[in-house]
Amino acid sequence: MVELLTAPFEFGFMQRALLGSVLVGTICALVGTYVVLRGLAFVGDALAHAAFPGVVIAYMLKGNIHLGATVFALATALGIGLVSRRGRVSYDTAIGILFAGAFALGVLLMSTIQGYTVDLFSFLFGNVLGISGRDLLVVGAFGAMVLLAIILFYKELLLLSFDPIVAEAMGYPVQALNYLLLGLIALTIVISIQAVGIILVVALLVTPSATASLLTERFFRMMVLGVVLAALAAVIGLYLSYYLNVASGAAIVLVSTCLFFLVLGGRGLRISGKPLA
C-alpha cells in the first residue's frame, strides 16, 4: 500500500511536479475565488492567451519566458481596464478585442522565426513534469507576492468584489483595486502556464473555486476549500497520470472537473439547498 503511494515519487521530476502543481493550484484557488465571484473567467482566459506573444518574444530574444509572459499579461490587464473605461465598449468586448489581438501578435511573431519553433506549442499545453527547480522558485516567489497582496488587501478586495459601488462611495480607489485584481490574475496565470498550458489554465483558475462556492456560504471558507480542492486535484491527477498512464496536466484539470460535478450532484441529491458549512 505504501509502495503504491510512494512509487510514483521515486524521481525528482515527480516530486517537483507534485510540489509545483499543489503550489500552482493553491495560488489559482486563492485568486480564483475572486475570479468566480466576480465572473471574470473570460478575463482569465484572455490574459492566458495574451501571455503568448510574451512567450514568443522572450523565446526570440532568448530571454526569460516567465518575464515575457508576465509583461504581456500585465499589459493586457491594463489594456482591458483602459479600453473598457475609455469608451462605449463593454467589458467583454474590450477583452475580446485585446485577447485576440495579443494572441494574433504572438502568432505573427512566431511566423517570422525560421524553423525550430515547434515547441512554442508546448506553452499552449504545458508540461508539469518538466518543472525545474528554478521554475519552482519562480512559482514560489510569484505565489508569495500574490498571497501577500491578498492578505494585505483582503478587506478591500472583498468589499470591491461584493459591492463595488459602495466601495467607491466610501472613497476606495476602485479602479486601482480592479487593476490590482487583474494584475494578480495575470501573475497567477503566468505561473500556471508551465503546469497546464495556456488552454487549460482557466480551468485551474475557476474550477476549484467554483466547487468551493457550492460547499460554503462564507468567503474565507470558500478560499480555503478552494485551496484544498485544488491541492487534492493536483495530487490525485498526478497519481492518475502515473497509474493510468495519461497526460499529467489534463489529468489534474479533469480530476478538478470531476470534483465539481460530484459536489454539484451531491447538492442536487440533498433536499433543496441548505448549506454544508
Partner: peptide, 17 residues
Amino acid sequence: RAFPVSVQDVVMMGRYP
C-alpha cells in the same frame, strides 16, 4: 445574491474605512 458573506460580514464592511 449568492455571494458567500453573512449579514454580519456585510455590516462589517461599513467599518472598513
